[in-house]
Simulated scan of single mutants.
Amino acid sequence: MFIVNITYQTPLEEIEKHLEAHIAFLDKYYEADVFLLSGRKNPRTGGVILARADSQVALQAILAEDPFYAHAVARYDVIEFVATKTAEPLVYLKES
């Protein structure tokens, strides 16, 4: 399991130019069951994605497709963790 911490590196006006394509990117990987949840930070300085992938290398390859990454408007910090405890509705995410 991975937490992807996205930090904008440019003004919001530049982020907005790529937002529609970024949302399409997110939709693609929700459909592929890679992304589990995502959203904007408050205040709006970036976003967070909870993802599951075979490896950090595989996830990095996916993130490289993000228009925010391709246009260098955001920085990505990836934290890998093992989900050993969950709330009951999320038990399917639990790892050994």
Results as ranks from 00 to 15, higher is better:
G46L: 14
G47Y: 11
P67T: 01
P89S: 01
L93H: 11
G39Y: 09
L37E: 06
S38W: 09
A87Y: 11
D66H: 14
T45I: 14
H22K: 07
L59Y: 13
I3P: 00
F25I: 04
Y8E: 00
Y76W: 14
H22G: 04
Y76T: 11
D77E: 15
E95V: 00
P89A: 02
I49F: 12
I49R: 12
T10D: 06
T86P: 08
L50S: 01
S55D: 10
G46Q: 02
V91Q: 04
E80L: 11
M1V: 08
R52N: 09
D54M: 10
N42E: 11
R40T: 03
D33S: 13
T45M: 07
P67Y: 04
I49L: 14
P11E: 12
L26D: 04
I62P: 10
K85A: 13
D77G: 02
A74K: 10
A61V: 03
F25A: 02
M1I: 02
I3F: 14
Y92L: 03
V78G: 01
H22Y: 01
I3C: 10
S38P: 07
F35I: 13
Y92F: 10
E80K: 14
V48G: 04
F81M: 14
A87N: 12
Y30T: 12
E95A: 03
T7A: 09
Y76N: 10
I79C: 07
Y92P: 01
F81H: 10
I49Q: 12
L63D: 06
V34I: 15
K85N: 13
E95S: 05
K94Y: 05
F68Q: 08
D54G: 15
L12F: 03
D54L: 02
